[in-house]
Amino acid sequence: MAKTIMTIDDSASIRQVVGITLKKAGYEVLEACDGKDALNKLTGQKVHLIVCDVNMPNMDGIAFLKTVKQHPAYKFTPIIMLTTESQEAKKQEGKAAGAKAWVVKPFKPEQMLSAVEKLILP
């Protein structure tokens, strides 16, 4: 059965690019537009990996990361954070909160895919 990846980003175009790339590679994709939306959609849903933007309205990536890590069902779920080079401070904050995998924006679809595949194969 195909593994499910949730992509969280407030930019529809990024969700689209990531979505297409991952689907093409054989993953199921679930989309959310911010942290809050993601938490709502996660309830009861099995996901194998989360790709999450840092800067988002309502609930940003770091806050989402902290919350989701406390949830027993998702505490072992690998999370890839999306960041821009200028967000070094954010990155430090994210690392402190337990984020280990980062992909720097702007990225090529293959880069995103290779990061995902290192963590879970489809």
Partner: peptide, 17 residues
Amino acid sequence: VLRNGMDPISFINYLTR
């Protein structure tokens, strides 16, 4: 590593690529 959401086996799997 597990608590960080990383599965050691996945890296080894990826190596085979």
